[in-house]
Design a protein around this nucleic acid. Sequence first.
DNA 1: TATATAATTTAGCCTGTGCTACACTCGGAC
DNA 2: GTCCGAGTGTAGCACAGGCTAAATTATATA
Lengths: 165, 165
Amino acid sequence: MAQPRKSTQANRRRGGPRPGVPGPDDQARGHHRTRQAHLVEVAEDYVETIADLLEVQGEARAVDLARRFGVSHVTVTKTVSRLQEAGLVTSRPYRAIFLTPAGRRLAAKCRHRHRVVVELLRKLGVREGTARLDAEGIEHHISSETLAAFERFAGRPAAPENTAR
Amino acid sequence: MAQPRKSTQANRRRGGPRPGVPGPDDQARGHHRTRQAHLVEVAEDYVETIADLLEVQGEARAVDLARRFGVSHVTVTKTVSRLQEAGLVTSRPYRAIFLTPAGRRLAAKCRHRHRVVVELLRKLGVREGTARLDAEGIEHHISSETLAAFERFAGRPAAPENTAR
DNA sequence: TATATAATTTAGCCTGTGCTACACTCGGAC
DNA sequence: GTCCGAGTGTAGCACAGGCTAAATTATATA
C-alpha cells in the first residue's frame, strides 16, 4: 500500500533529481493566466464586439451581445456592469452600451491583433471560416513579441505556392 | 436623450441593414467556448502537467501541481476530483495522482499539439521562452485543421530565406 | 392615446475556481 | 516507539459567469 512513495518524497525534500523540468516558478508564471487573465479575455471579447456593433448599427444593445456570445442577456448585463466599473464601457439604464476612450483603445488593439492572426492562419493555408473561429481563441494569448513575428510573416510575399497574395 | 435609437431598433425588428456583420449565429458558435471550453482547457493543462510529472519524478502530487500552476493545493484537489469524475485521472486519499488511459491519450494529444505550436512560433522567429509561454495559451484554441497547417509549416523547408532548415 | 412587444432590470440560484484556516496522515528521523 | 513536518483533506468564504422567472421600461403602431 506504499510502494512508489519512499524514494520520491525523500528526493523532493532533499532537492533530488529534477532533470529537465521547466522549474516550478516560471511554469507557474505561465499558467497563472488561468484565472486573472480570463477576465482580460472577456473584456477583450466584449469591447471588440461592442466596437463592431457600434460601427455596423450605431449602437450596441445587451441583446445583440447576448446573441453574439450565445449567452443570456442577463449574463451580458452583469459582465457589462463589471466592464463599466473597469472603465471600459458606459451604459445607462435602458440605453445602449458605448465604449469609453480606454475601451476604444483596447478594441482597436484587439481588432488589429485579430486581423493579424487571421491573416497568418490564412497564409498557412487555413480556410477562412476556421481561421476566424480559431483566431478568436488564439488572439488573447499572443505576446507582443509573437504578434510582431506574425506581422512580419503575414505582411510578406508569403509562402511559395500562395504567391497570389 | 434618445438620439441614435429610433432608427436602429426598428431596423433590428424588421431585419434591417446588417451589412457585413458575421451573423449572430456563427459568431455565437465561436464564442460559446467561453465557458464550456474553459473546463476543457483546465483538463488539458492538468493532464499535460501530470504526464510531465509522472515522467520526470514517477508520480504527481497535488503539491507539485499547485506549484506548477501557482495556485493553492486546495484548488488542485478540487479540480483533480472533478477530473477524476470525468475519468481522466485516478487518485486515492493521501496518495499520488495518476492518469487513466483516457487521460494518457489526452495528454499525448496535448503534448504533440503543444510541441507543434512551439515549433511554429520558433520558425516565425519568436524566442524560445516566449514561444513556450505563448504556446501554453494558444494550444487550447487550435482546431485540427489549423494544427495540420501548423505541422505543414513547421515541418517544412520553411520560408524562402530560412532555406537552411 | 393606448397598447402590444421587445428590451432591460432585478432577484435568486448553480457551478467553477480561487483563497485561508485548521485537522489529519504518513514517512522518516530521533 | 514517538514525534515532526510535509503533504492532504475539509470547512467555509468570495467572486465570475452561467441560468430562469418575474417585474419594469421604451418604442412603434394601431
